[in-house]
Design a protein around this nucleic acid. Structure first.
Lengths: 245, 245
DNA sequence: TACTACATCTCGCAT
DNA sequence: ATGCGAGGTGTAGTA
């Protein structure tokens, strides 16, 4: 694709808030929260309707460069090259893509107002614990869940039969040292605010790392094996049969 | 673009490890670490040379769905639709993209062996502190930096003039409560292993939140204002003039 | 492989 | 605007 033709296409598509995709050979300079340089190679450039710019290499799941929505996109012709300047003045960042060749490009207006419905997150997990408190302890009585109490964001907050307060921290994946740090901070906060030492912590997760379990125990806290529930599991179970053949 | 033609193009491109980009109207079902459904709308599908699959909506900087490298991609014709099944058996996940229309698509073999050279990360920051220890304290003497010592991952580890050990934790952006948690854990670990109470902590960051500063002080630790250095700032400063006009 | 911590993390929610 | 924590986080480094 001739570079001048490519430039015209990109400029008109960006002006019309179309989505643009291009296969190019380029080198890239970034400056903003960090600074980076990427030498010449083949990449995929995506410009979205909201002026988000994303650059992908031919392999790997994360973009090598990107600029957030609302960037200003300018093209500058330099000899046979095309410099794509992407600026975000508010964030004091820029991305300069020097395009040596444009192999192919496409643009189109796309419409999509849908939002994804997702199940199995940490909120589903704390809901499930509130409704199934016995998984934390036979006498565990939940008081609040994911609410902004006077002690802050605590996933599930309750008390046991003896009147001791219980702070539950949920993790949807293996709990690590950082989860124990967080639980400890919450328990200390509750002790401080309630002016009582009768507070303990429970880490609820599908599993826990050995170091985290050791640290948890050293603070007198407890691990509870809980899986994040998947609301949509009805169809999931059917689909999963595919894996089994 | 006729859906049968699209199917043939995708299958041959995937087999040839080409990169594929398509503008489609589709709905998407995901099951894996969580479960999700996304109703009908226009999206961009990217299939990379390593069988990574990424789906973007027309706005926003993050993909709405993705499958990691090494996925199995199968197409199934259902009446006038096309079902793209993406499976990753190892991760027990799948992505089903029901494509109602393929507006446009392109594929191409892309070559890129380049790696990005990046400056201004946390490692650069700990390097800089090691080489400029006075920023931590007039008598601070660094011993190690980002090394796996017998006390674990500590950004910069040293001692002050009085023989007291100093643990430095670096954050390239504003330090929060979690950074203080981390520093406290490291200091406790060093106290335990060295069997000494003469250990203190320093949090080095460009700024710190009020709560984090309060917690830091309550543990007897100290905040040090340090910016992540940008090795490439030579050209950066020149380019930044653009912002000023 | 599991564990740990960084990331130009991004995003949402609440103050 | 800032603070805080989740994320289908992903990725790199290391044991």
């Amino acid at each position: 694709m001739e570079i001048g033709e490519f430039a015209v296409m990109v400029e008109s598509a960006v002006a019309a808030h179309e989505v643009v995709i291009a296969f190019v050979h380029c080198q890239i300079t970034y400056s903003g929260r960090a600074e980076a340089f990427l030498g010449r190679g083949d990449r995929i450039i995506m410009i979205k309707a909201d002026a988000t710019v994303i650059v992908h290499q031919p392999e790997g799941s994360v973009p090598i460069n990107y600029m957030r929505p609302g960037s200003a996109i300018d093209l500058e012709r330099i000899d046979e090259h095309l410099m794509m300047h992407v600026r975000n003045d508010k964030e004091h960042s820029f991305l300069d893509i020097e395009i040596f060749r444009a192999y192919d490009a496409a643009s189109r207006r796309l419409d999509d107002g849908q939002k994804q419905d997702l199940a199995g997150n940490e909120r589903d997990m704390s809901d499930w614990i509130r409704d199934n408190p016995a998984c934390i302890g036979a006498d565990f009585k939940p008081i609040s869940r994911e609410e902004q109490t006077d002690v802050g964001f605590i996933d599930v907050f309750g008390h046991d039969g003896t009147g001791r307060l219980v702070v539950v921290e949920c993790k949807r994946i293996t709990a690590s040292l950082m989860a124990v740090d967080q639980l400890r901070r919450y328990v200390e906060r509750v002790k401080m605010i309630k002016g009582s030492q009768a507070v303990t912590g429970v880490l609820a997760a599908p599993s826990i790392t050995p170091n985290a379990l050791e640290m948890l125990s050293s603070w007198g806290f407890r691990f509870c094996r809980v899986e994040a529930p998947k609301r949509l599991e009805r169809w999931s179970r059917d689909q999963k049969k595919i894996f089994e053949y």
